[in-house]
Simulated scan of single mutants.
Amino acid sequence: MKLTSEELLEIVVKAADDKLAQDILALDVHGLTSLADYFVVMNGRNEKQVAAIVESIVQNVAKNQGDVKNVEGKDSGRWTLIDLNDIIVHVFNYEERGYYNIEKLWSDAPLVDISGMVKEQ
C-alpha cells in the first residue's frame, strides 16, 4: 500500500525530530507547484547533525515502504535535498538556511501544523 502524502510527512517530521532537527517547518505547496505536495525545511547545528538527520529520514521512509527518489548534497553537509516524490525535504546547516531562506521564497504556501508530530521541547 502506497503511503499518503500526509503519512509520509509524519514519518519525515518524526525522523527529523528524533535527531533533534531545529525549526522544522512544513509548507503545503499543493496549489503552488506540481513538484510536490509538501516542502519540509529544517536545520541542524553542524555538518554531523545534518548527516544524521538525513540518514534518519531516508532510513525511516524506506522502513515504511516509502520511495526515496533522490538525495542530493549529502556529501557537503551544508544543504541536503531529499526527493520523496510527494515531499521535498531540505536539511540545512544553520548558516545555509538563513542564506537561502526557502521559507521566504515559498511564503505563499500555508504552514502545516506539525505540533502533534514532534516531541515537546
Results as ranks from 00 to 15, higher is better:
24 I>T: 10
30 H>C: 08
91 V>M: 07
5 S>Y: 00
84 L>P: 02
63 K>N: 15
55 E>S: 14
103 E>Y: 04
57 I>Q: 10
75 D>E: 14
81 L>R: 00
39 F>L: 12
113 D>S: 11
70 N>K: 14
51 A>V: 01
93 N>A: 12
51 A>R: 13
70 N>Q: 11
37 D>E: 15
107 S>N: 13
95 E>H: 10
30 H>F: 10
65 Q>M: 06
40 V>K: 02
33 T>Q: 09
74 K>Q: 12
10 E>N: 12
48 K>P: 07
74 K>G: 04
76 S>K: 08
58 V>E: 15
33 T>R: 11
49 Q>W: 01
38 Y>T: 02
22 Q>W: 01
43 N>R: 11
48 K>R: 15
39 F>M: 04
44 G>C: 05
19 K>P: 05
68 V>H: 05
68 V>K: 07
99 Y>K: 08
43 N>Q: 14
115 S>Q: 09
45 R>Q: 13
21 A>W: 00
46 N>D: 14
102 I>P: 01
86 D>H: 01
65 Q>C: 06
110 P>D: 12
91 V>F: 02
50 V>N: 01
4 T>F: 05
44 G>I: 06
19 K>C: 07
56 S>E: 09
84 L>D: 08
120 E>S: 14
102 I>N: 07
22 Q>D: 10
2 K>D: 09
118 V>L: 02
20 L>R: 15
42 M>H: 09
57 I>H: 10
94 Y>C: 00
81 L>K: 01
76 S>N: 10
25 L>E: 11
52 A>N: 10
56 S>Q: 10
105 L>K: 05
74 K>E: 14
70 N>I: 03
104 K>D: 09
109 A>F: 08
7 E>Q: 15
102 I>Y: 06
85 N>A: 08
37 D>C: 10
54 V>N: 11
64 N>E: 10
14 K>C: 03
89 V>A: 12
27 L>Y: 02
85 N>I: 15
46 N>I: 12
106 W>A: 00
23 D>Y: 04
25 L>A: 13
83 D>L: 05
84 L>S: 02
3 L>K: 08
2 K>W: 01
62 A>T: 15
83 D>K: 09
61 V>F: 08
49 Q>R: 05
41 V>E: 07
16 A>K: 03
10 E>M: 04
37 D>A: 09
116 G>A: 13
38 Y>L: 03
111 L>G: 00
118 V>Y: 06
57 I>Y: 13
39 F>V: 02
41 V>N: 07
42 M>K: 04
5 S>N: 09
72 E>A: 15
73 G>P: 12
27 L>D: 03
7 E>N: 14
78 R>Y: 07
73 G>A: 08
65 Q>R: 14
120 E>Y: 10
18 D>H: 05
92 F>E: 02
120 E>Q: 14
58 V>S: 11
47 E>F: 02
63 K>F: 13
50 V>I: 11
105 L>W: 00
21 A>C: 05
49 Q>E: 03
28 D>C: 08
